[in-house]
Amino acid sequence: MKLSPLELDALTELFNMGVGQAADALSQLAGEPVLLSIPEVRLLPKAEVIRQLARGDDKRVSAVRQGFHGDIVTDAILMFPAEQSLQLVQIMVGEQVPLEHLGEMEQEALAEIGNILLNSVVASVADSLGLALDGSLPEVELGVVSDVLLAEQDVDEPLLSLQVRFDIATRSIHGYLAFLLDMRSTGMLEERVADFIRRLPGGGA
């Protein structure tokens, strides 16, 4: 799969619309403004994503995985550094909940956060590109980066990666979205992105 700078720019804009919708929904859930940065969209080998996230050490992450099937097949994965996930959960459930009580509700809260963000982003892109997709229920995984991303797949296979920063009050939490696509799905995505660009004013020029 190869995406031109123009195609990456188009995908960034499409993903950003979904991120904006997710920010609104998360703000309502948190009861305070949640600002999400414009996602940095890149096509990278899994090994490079693991290197960036692990930073030389295969760190533990809290991840939410959701499968989408239809015109394309993808696993969408939202990851946070494990040490930041409890902070995010506390923001969502309220500061009055003691930190020691958060562990028991961490997975449920993370699943809700992931469900909002992943569905908003995927739905926005699917609508714009004319893709019909159905999503599974989100699953929470706690583990090292390589186990979450690789499963049984080739470390050199590319994935579509998005880095998003959550800014909530005085805290900044870095989330990472990854989309694992099979070969048929990457070809379909390339075709739909090219069609989308051609439909833009001046896109055929």
Rank of each mutant, 00 (worst) to 15 (best):
V61H: 04
S27Y: 08
L6P: 07
V64E: 00
G67N: 14
E83A: 13
A205G: 10
A63V: 05
P98K: 14
G114Q: 01
V89F: 03
H69V: 13
M17Y: 07
V155M: 06
T74F: 02
A22L: 08
L133V: 06
A23S: 04
L99D: 12
G18Q: 05
R65T: 05
T12C: 07
L53Q: 10
R42Y: 02
D9I: 04
F15A: 03
V97N: 03
H101N: 15
L53V: 06
L181P: 11
L86H: 14
G94W: 11
L99I: 12
V97D: 08
I50H: 01
L35W: 06
L133G: 04
G67A: 15
Q52D: 04
L44K: 12
D57K: 15
F166Q: 06
R65D: 00
D57C: 09
V193D: 01
D24T: 12
V34N: 03
D182A: 00
A22E: 03
D156V: 09
I91W: 12
E157A: 10
V193M: 05
M183E: 15
S85K: 10
E95S: 13
S128V: 05
Q52A: 06
D75Y: 06
G135D: 14
L8W: 03
G31D: 13
L36N: 05
L181N: 02
S136E: 13
L162N: 03
L26I: 03
R198D: 09
D134W: 12
L36F: 02
L129Q: 09
V148H: 01
G94I: 02
L35V: 12
I116D: 06
Q153L: 11
A132M: 15
E32M: 13
L8I: 10
A194N: 05
V155R: 01
M79W: 00
F68K: 00
S62M: 11
E106Y: 08
R171H: 07
R184I: 03
L180Y: 01
L189W: 12
S136I: 07
I50Q: 02
A63D: 01
M92E: 06
T12D: 05
D182S: 00
F196G: 01
L44A: 07
L180R: 11
R55M: 11
M17T: 14
Q96R: 14
V193Q: 09
E141F: 15
Y176V: 00
R42L: 04
I91M: 15
E48G: 09
D147Y: 08
I173Y: 07
A111I: 01
E191N: 05
A63G: 09
G204C: 11
M92Q: 04
H69I: 08
